[in-house]
Computed example of a mutant assay.
Amino acid sequence: MESQNSSRSCKNLFIAVVLMTCFSAMFYMYYEPSVNWLKCPAVPKHDVCGDVCGNICINALKRPNQIQIVNNTCMVNFTSLRHQLTQTEAASSQGDTVLLIWMWPFGQQFDLGICSSMFDIHGCHLTVDKSQFNRAQGLLFHHRDINGDLSNMPKLPRPPFQKWVWMNMESPSNSPQRSNLNNLFNLTANYRQDSDIMVPYGRISENTGGKKHDEIPRKNKLVCWIVSNWNWNHKRSRYYAELKEHISIETYGNHFNKRISNQDYSDVVSSCKFYLSFENSIHKDYITEKLYNPLSLGTVPVVLGPPRKNYEELIPGSAFIHVDDFNSPKELAEHLKLLDQNDDLYRQYFTWREHFVSSAGVFGLEHACRACDHIRRNKNYRVVNDLNSWYWG
Results as ranks from 00 to 15, higher is better:
residue 210 G to W: 01
residue 257 N to C: 09
residue 31 Y to Q: 13
residue 377 R to A: 10
residue 309 K to A: 12
residue 96 D to R: 03
residue 135 R to C: 01
residue 352 W to C: 05
residue 127 T to C: 00
residue 20 M to S: 12
residue 203 R to T: 12
residue 366 E to L: 07
residue 294 P to I: 03
residue 157 P to I: 06
residue 210 G to S: 07
residue 23 F to N: 10
residue 140 L to D: 00
residue 10 C to P: 01
residue 259 R to P: 05
residue 255 H to M: 07
residue 58 I to H: 08
residue 81 L to Y: 13
residue 301 P to E: 04
residue 302 V to W: 02
residue 316 P to Q: 04
residue 300 V to F: 02
residue 166 W to P: 00
residue 186 N to S: 11
residue 164 W to L: 02
residue 343 D to Y: 00
residue 157 P to H: 14
residue 18 V to R: 02
residue 348 Q to V: 04
residue 12 N to K: 10
residue 266 S to L: 09
residue 69 I to K: 14
residue 183 N to A: 08
residue 90 A to I: 05
residue 22 C to K: 04
residue 183 N to C: 09
residue 54 G to H: 04
residue 304 L to K: 11
residue 44 P to I: 12
residue 127 T to K: 00
residue 356 F to R: 09
residue 156 L to V: 01
residue 348 Q to W: 06
residue 276 L to Q: 06
residue 379 K to R: 14
residue 202 G to I: 04
residue 216 I to Q: 02
residue 173 S to L: 13
residue 330 K to S: 14
residue 302 V to H: 02
residue 77 N to H: 11
residue 293 N to P: 00
residue 144 R to L: 13
residue 325 D to Y: 01
residue 367 H to M: 07
residue 168 N to G: 01
residue 249 I to S: 06
residue 270 S to E: 02
residue 26 M to D: 04
residue 274 F to C: 02
residue 358 S to F: 12
residue 307 P to I: 02
residue 297 L to D: 00
residue 110 F to D: 01
residue 196 D to N: 10
residue 265 Y to P: 02
residue 383 V to I: 15
residue 318 S to V: 10
residue 61 L to S: 10
residue 306 P to F: 01
residue 241 A to E: 14
residue 238 R to K: 13
residue 266 S to G: 06
residue 356 F to L: 15
residue 254 N to I: 09
residue 225 W to R: 13
residue 204 I to T: 05
residue 258 K to M: 15
residue 88 T to P: 00
residue 247 I to R: 03
residue 391 Y to W: 15
residue 239 Y to P: 02
residue 260 I to M: 05
residue 212 K to G: 05
residue 226 I to L: 13
residue 258 K to W: 05
residue 346 Y to M: 10
residue 93 S to I: 05
residue 76 V to F: 09
residue 155 K to L: 15
residue 144 R to D: 10
residue 365 L to Q: 07
residue 324 D to H: 07
residue 100 L to I: 04
residue 285 D to C: 05
residue 196 D to G: 06
residue 338 L to T: 15
residue 120 D to F: 12
residue 10 C to F: 13
residue 370 R to Q: 14
residue 94 Q to E: 15
residue 189 A to R: 02
residue 322 H to T: 06
residue 279 E to K: 03
residue 205 S to K: 15
residue 69 I to S: 08
residue 335 H to F: 11
residue 196 D to K: 03
residue 197 I to V: 14
